[in-house]
Design a binder for these strands. Structure first.
Length: 279
DNA sequence: ATTTTCCCCTGCCGGC
DNA sequence: TGCCGGCAGGGGAAAA
């Protein structure tokens, strides 16, 4: 479900509400959420800790604490983090964990498909980036993500470009929606071998990735189906998508009919008029 | 080494 | 109406 813009939206909302607050009772309603660490150790270790920051790395949310390693959260496909200033809404379904905060309020982790996870980063990490190395690549909205850097990541790769964009170890935070949207904006076909993009195509793709991610953050993310922000509200980006989930509708750029295909096992939308297939 | 595929789960939708 | 396959914003392990 949530990609970088959705996680970033939630991050900002939780930062406002959690920083400086003390975690109280932690109730894990679904042990699968916390595997493999022991549920009781997880809950006990959080109680009494003060939240000092809420960060994002790729699609991971990180809650920094006054002692011990950060709390890590990943929403995967259908996870939600819902903030309730008072008692949680009893109508919320698929509740996996509840974090009470001192002074009132509860953070609820709900997740229909149960793919989401919560855990503590390892103790005594000298450098957190060492934990992410090989697992999460460059931040596409960070200073390190230049057109030249993207070119370096694509160079020599014979596989199709879309799965490479979805590979979190290469670029962090791009998911199926924004991969389709960025490739469409850049007029690059998702099946093009990554290393075959010329300099101008790399430049366009770099610009498109940042532009679409920024637009989505500004819009509060895409609520195609399950996604809700920390207030339980829908985002606005789903109405601004140009190709994703627009099968059979006219391309906003050239009028050709948007088609749906399958690339790397993922449903993929593209405009056959704008995005020329590989030779 | 890099690239598919299978799997983890639940719910929904379309086809028969 | 009911059953069944297919699909879904993700990612890790196993297999090729």
């Amino acid at each position: 479900m949530p990609e970088l813009p959705e996680v970033e939206t939630i991050r900002g909302q939780l930062e406002e509400r959690l920083v400086g607050r003390v975690i109280g009772r932690v109730a894990v309603d679904d042990a699968l959420l916390v595997a493999p660490a022991a549920v009781t150790a997880f809950a006990r270790g959080l109680r009494g800790r003060t939240v000092t920051a809420v960060r994002r790395r790729g699609k991971y949310l990180l809650v920094d604490l006054d002692a011990g390693p950060p709390l890590a959260l990943h929403l995967r496909m259908t996870g939600r983090l819902l903030w309730f200033p008072g008692r949680p809404d009893p109508d919320v379904t698929h509740v996996r964990a509840r974090f009470d905060l001192g002074g009132g309020g509860t953070l609820v982790f709900a997740d229909m498909r149960r793919f989401g996870r919560a855990w503590r980063l390892p103790e005594g990490l000298p450098d957190e980036e060492a934990y992410w190395a090989g697992r999460v690549g460059v931040e596409p909205l960070g200073d390190g993500f230049t057109a030249a850097a993207l070119g370096g990541l694509l160079a020599g790769r014979r596989g199709p470009v879309k799965p490479l964009l979805l590979n979190q170890a290469v670029v962090a935070g791009i998911g199926n929606i924004y991969a389709d949207e960025a490739l469409f904006q850049a007029r690059v076909h998702p099946l093009r071998p990554a290393g075959s993009l010329d300099r101008d195509e790399v430049r366009r793709l770099h610009r498109a990735i940042r532009d679409r991610l920024r637009a989505a953050v500004a819009a509060g993310g895409s609520s195609i189906d399950r996604y809700r922000d920390a207030n339980g509200d829908r985002g606005g980006m789903q109405d601004l998508l140009r190709v994703h989930r627009r099968e059979g509708r006219p391309c906003v750029r050239c009028g050709a009919t948007v088609v749906k295909t399958r690339v790397g096992g993922r449903g993929t939308y593209l405009c056959p008029g704008c995005q020329a297939p590989p030779a």
